[in-house]
C-alpha cells in the first residue's frame, strides 16, 4: 500500500494565533483514519488545510503537504481547483447550510462533474450515485430544503464522490443526525471503501464510533495531535493522559448509578496557550518540563505519542 497523503510539520494560523501546531501524519491507500478531539481543537481546520480552503485570516505558515507525491502546499489556486472535488472530496459538518438553497440537488451535483460530457450522461451519473447513496431518483429534482437532514447528508456524500476521488474528507457527517440515520451513513462509508477504492479521513468527537469505523485514530488537543495509532490499541490502552481521560469519560465505561465523569479544567483558548504541552494545566502527572516545552513525537511500537512521560525526559 502506498501513501496518498503525507503531512509534514504543518503550522496553521496568523501572526496572533496558531491554530494547528506541528501537525504530521500520513494516510495510506484505502485506509480510514479518524481524527477525534473536543470541540474547537482544530479538526475542521485540519481538513480545510488539506484542500487549502482555510478561512481568509488563516494561512499555512510552515510545513509541507504531499498528495499522491505532489507537493500541494506549492500549488496555485487554479491548480488546486483541479484537485478539489476531483481527487479529494469533502463532506461538511452541517449539510443544510452547505447546499446552495437556489439549486436542485441534481443541478448542484452535476455542476461538480469534471469531464465534458453531455447533459444526459451527467444526469444518468448523478442519478446512479444518488441511488448508490440510498436516495430515490426524485431527489435529483428536489431543492435542499425539501430534504431531511439525513437525505441532505447523503446528497453531500454523493456530491463529494461524483468524480470518484481517491481521498474523502468527512467532517462529522453524523453529528447532526439521529442514531439510526447516523448508522446508515457509517455503513455507507464503510461500503464505499470497498466499491470506490478510496481513503477516508473521518472527523468525529465520538471515540467509540472512531474505533468501530477506522483503521487508525488520531487524537487531537488544542491544535496538536497528541496520539496516533491503530484504533483498537488506542482505544484499549491509551498512552496519552488526555486520551486516557477521554476514554474513561465514555458512558459505556460507567457502572450503573456512577456519577458522570468529566475532565477537570478547560480547553485552553488559542489566544493564550500554555507555553509547553497544551494539556499540562489539566494534567495530573505533569512535570516541570511539561510547562516549558511542547513534547516531541515519541514512537512506541505502532504508536506515536506526544507526552514527556514516555522516553526519558522526566529526570532532566
Amino acid at each position: 500500500m502506498g501513501k496518498i497523503l503525507e503531512i509534514k510539520n504543518v503550522v496553521v494560523g496568523n501572526e496572533e494565533i496558531k491554530i494547528l501546531r506541528d501537525i504530521s501524519f500520513e494516510v495510506e491507500e484505502r485506509e480510514i483514519i479518524s481524527i477525534v478531539g473536543e470541540s474547537g481543537c482544530g479538526k475542521s481546520i485540519t481538513l480545510r488545510t488539506i484542500i487549502k480552503l482555510l478561512p481568509q485570516n488563516l494561512n499555512i505558515l510552515s510545513g509541507k503537504i504531499f498528495f499522491e507525491g505532489l507537493e500541494i502546499t506549492k500549488l496555485k489556486e487554479k491548480e488546486m481547483q483541479n484537485i478539489r472535488g476531483k481527487k479529494i472530496g469533502m463532506i461538511f459538518q452541517e449539510p443544510s447550510s452547505f447546499l446552495n438553497p437556489l439549486f436542485t440537488i441534481g443541478n448542484q451535483i452535476e455542476e461538480g462533474i469534471n469531464e465534458k460530457v453531455e447533459k444526459d450522461k451527467k444526469k444518468e451519473r448523478v442519478i446512479k450515485i444518488l441511488e448508490e447513496m440510498g436516495l430515490s431518483y426524485n431527489v435529483y429534482y428536489q431543492y435542499p430544503h425539501q430534504l431531511s437532514g439525513g437525505m441532505q447528508q447523503r446528497a453531500m456524500i454523493a456530491m463529494a464522490l461524483i468524480n470518484n476521488p481517491v481521498l474523502l474528507l468527512a467532517d462529522e457527517p453524523t453529528t447532526a443526525l439521529d442514531v439510526t440515520t447516523a448508522f446508515g451513513i457509517i455503513s455507507l462509508l464503510k461500503n464505499l471503501i470497498l466499491i470506490h477504492n478510496l481513503s477516508i479521513i473521518f472527523v468525529t468527537h465520538d471515540i467509540s464510533l472512531a474505533k468501530y469505523l477506522s483503521d487508525r485514530i488520531f487524537v487531537m488537543y488544542a491544535g496538536i495531535i497528541v496520539e496516533k495509532g491503530p484504533s483498537i490499541e488506542v482505544y484499549n490502552s491509551p498512552l496519552h493522559p488526555y486520551t486516557q481521560k477521554l476514554i474513561n469519560c465514555l458512558p459505556e465505561k460507567y457502572n450503573k448509578g456512577e456519577k458522570i465523569k468529566t475532565i477537570e479544567g478547560e480547553v485552553p483558548s488559542f489566544k493564550n496557550l500554555p507555553l509547553g504541552c497544551p494539556f499540562s494545566p489539566r494534567c495530573e502527572i505533569k512535570n516541570k518540563i511539561c510547562e516549558k516545552r511542547i513534547p516531541p513525537e515519541i514512537k512506541i511500537g505502532n504508536r506515536i505519542v506526544r507526552c514527556f512521560k514516555y522516553g526519558n525526559f522526566m529526570e532532566s
Binding site: R84, G85, F92, N100, E111
Partner: peptide
C-alpha cells in the same frame, strides 16, 4: 457555507461568483 462547498468541488472562481453568489 455553500460557497465553501462549491469551492471544495473545485468549481472555478468566476463560476462561483456568477452562479452561486450573484443568484443569491
Amino acid at each position: 457555507e455553500y460557497v465553501l462547498s462549491a469551492k471544495a468541488l473545485g468549481i472555478p472562481t468566476f463560476r462561483i461568483i456568477f452562479r452561486h453568489i450573484i443568484p443569491n
